[in-house]
Design a protein around this nucleic acid. Sequence first.
DNA 1: CGTGAATTTGAGCGCAATCAACCCTTGTGG
DNA 2: CCACAAGGGTTGATTGCGCTCAAATTCACG
Lengths: 325, 325
Amino acid sequence: MAGYAVITAADGKIGVEMAIKHLPSLVICDIMMPELDGYGVLYLLNKNPKTNAIPLIFLTAKAERTDVRKGMEMGADDYLIKPFDDIELLKAIESRLSKKKQQEQFYTQGLKKLTEFSKNSDGALELKNLVELKRIRNLKKGQILYYEGDTTQGVYLVLSGKVKISKLSEDGRIFLTGIYHTDEYFGMHDALVAKIHLETAEAMEEASICLLQKEQFDEVLSKYPNIAMQFIHLLASSIQNKDEQLVQMAYHSVRKRMAETLIRISEINKNTIFKISRDDLAAMAGMATETVSRTLSDFKEENLLEKKGSEIQLINLPKLQNMKN
Amino acid sequence: MAGYAVITAADGKIGVEMAIKHLPSLVICDIMMPELDGYGVLYLLNKNPKTNAIPLIFLTAKAERTDVRKGMEMGADDYLIKPFDDIELLKAIESRLSKKKQQEQFYTQGLKKLTEFSKNSDGALELKNLVELKRIRNLKKGQILYYEGDTTQGVYLVLSGKVKISKLSEDGRIFLTGIYHTDEYFGMHDALVAKIHLETAEAMEEASICLLQKEQFDEVLSKYPNIAMQFIHLLASSIQNKDEQLVQMAYHSVRKRMAETLIRISEINKNTIFKISRDDLAAMAGMATETVSRTLSDFKEENLLEKKGSEIQLINLPKLQNMKN
DNA sequence: CGTGAATTTGAGCGCAATCAACCCTTGTGG
DNA sequence: CCACAAGGGTTGATTGCGCTCAAATTCACG
C-alpha cells in the first residue's frame, strides 16, 4: 500500500540468497528463523561486498536489552519489537531510505575529496565510478569492519568518524597501529600485499566509510600515475612514522612514551582536548592499562594535563614534548 | 707520458672546484694541504652528487696506520705513501680505472634488475638512463653513506653487499630499522617525503650502491605506472613488517624478541648461518648488548643455535619460531 | 538512582638495564 | 715468534621500572 515492491523469503538462508540476487533497497528481517537466524543473515550480508551497504531492520519478538544491543552492534540499522504498529514500521523504513538518500550527498562530498586528491584531474572520473553509493557503509561505535584473517575487499576511505586499526600479539594483547578519520585511507597494505587482513578495523565512534574495490583501485593506480604518486607519498610518510615509533617503543620509558602518544593523538584530532579510553591509550603506547592510569595521574599532578572522565586536555605541550626519558 | 690528461690544483679548495668543474675520471690528492686538507676534499667530493663516484687516491707523507685507516674508511679508493715509485702510482691509477670499467659491467647487471623490475618493459629505457655509471659508489665496511640530517639526494639501489639503516633515539641509543642488500631499494621514505634524511645509512660490509636521483626517480614513477605500482607494493609490505615489529617490541619478552630477530636476519640473508655483531643485534631487537649475549648463551644451552665468535648458526628454527613469551 | 563498566590506587615481584670485571680473539710491533 | 694492546664478547651483581593481581572508587547510562 505504501508503494514499495516487496520480495519475501521463508527463512534466513533463502533470504540471503534473494538479497544477493535482487539487491533490494532495504532488508527487513526476523531474528528467530529456521535454517539461519537473523544474526547470521546480517553477518552474511555484511560480509558480501555486493550487499554490505543495504540497510537492514530487525523486526522480532526478541525484546531483551542484550538482544537489541547485539543486533545494533552487529550493524543492524534499526530494531523493531513485535508486536509493532504499522506506522512504526513505515516510519522506520522511510527513515532508513532517507538516510540512504543523505548518503548520496555524502557521496558527493567523498567524491570532492577524491577529486581534490588528484590535483591534475586525470583519473578523477575513474575514481568517481569507484566510489559507488552502494559501497558506503555506516558503522556504529565498536562495530568491527574486518578481523585479522578476513579476506580483503579493498581499500577504505573514511568519510566521517574514526576507525582504529589494531593487531593482536600472540598472547592476545592488542596494539593499535593506527587511527584514521575523515578523508584518510586505510587497509591499503592488506589489500595490496596479502589477500588476507593482518589487522582488525573497528569504529571508534559512529563512522561512515567507503570501500574502493581492490581490482578497481589497482586499475586506477595503474592508469593514473599522479594518483599512484600520492599514495606512494602517503605510504612513505607512514613508514617514517612507524620507524619513529619503533625507536620509541624500543628505548623510551613509559613516561616518555605516554607523552609521545598523547601528542600523537592530539595531532590526529587536531585538538589538545580529546576523548580516549585508557585501554586504547594502553594499546597505542604498548603498556598496561593500569600504568596508563598511573602515568596520567602523575602528569596531572605535574600540571601537564587536565582530565575528567575519559576526556583529556593537554596543558603543557612543550614540557610533554621534552619529557625526559 | 702514460697518456692521461692531467689537471692540477694548488690546494684542496681549488682542487675541489676544479674537480666539480671538469669532472675528471680520477682524483689524486695529498692530505696535508693549505686551505682544505685531503680529508676535507674527500668529504666534499663524496657529498656532491656530481663527483661522489669519482675514484680518489691519497698520495701523502702521512704514513701512520691511523692515517691510512682514516683515509680508507672515509671512502678513499687507494692510499699511497711518499716517497713513491712511479710504477706504483701508475699501477694504482690503472687499477682504479679498470675497476671503474668493471662497474660498467655491474651497471649492466643493475640494469637487468631494473628491467626485470618492470615486467612490462614500459619505462625500462628511462630507468636505464637513471642508472648512470657515474652514480655507482663503492662503500667500505663501516662507511657512512648519509647521516640523519643530511639532505637527500635520491633513492638508492644496492648492487652488492649489505647496508644498514639506523635511527638514533634522543638519548643516543641506536635502533636498526632495516638491512638492505642486493637488488633492494632504500632511502625512499626520506627522498619522497622529507628533504632531509631521518635515518643513517652505513655499509655493513664492502658494498656498492647506485643512486637514482630524486627528480628523475619521481619522473619515472609518474610516467610509468607499473613501476610505481611495484614500489607501492614494496612500501605496503614494508609497513606490514613494521606493524608486526611494533607489536613485538611492545609486548614480547626479550627471549621472544631475540628469537624473532634471529629469524628475521636469517630470512634477510637467506641462510641459517650468518655473521652479525652483538651491537647490531641489540640495535635490531631493541635491547642491551649484554642481554643479547646472555640470551644467545641461553639459546646455545638449549641447543637452539651454535655460535663461534660473531658467527651464528640457527639449529632449531621451529622452536625459535614458537618461542614462548 | 542503581548497575555494570571503566578507572584509579595499592602491594609485590620479576625481568632486563646498568655498571663492572673479566675473557677471548685478532692484529701489530718489537 | 712472542708480548701486548684493543675491541668485541661474556658473565656477575645490583637495582628499579613497569607488569600483575587485587581491591576500591568513580563514571556512564538507562
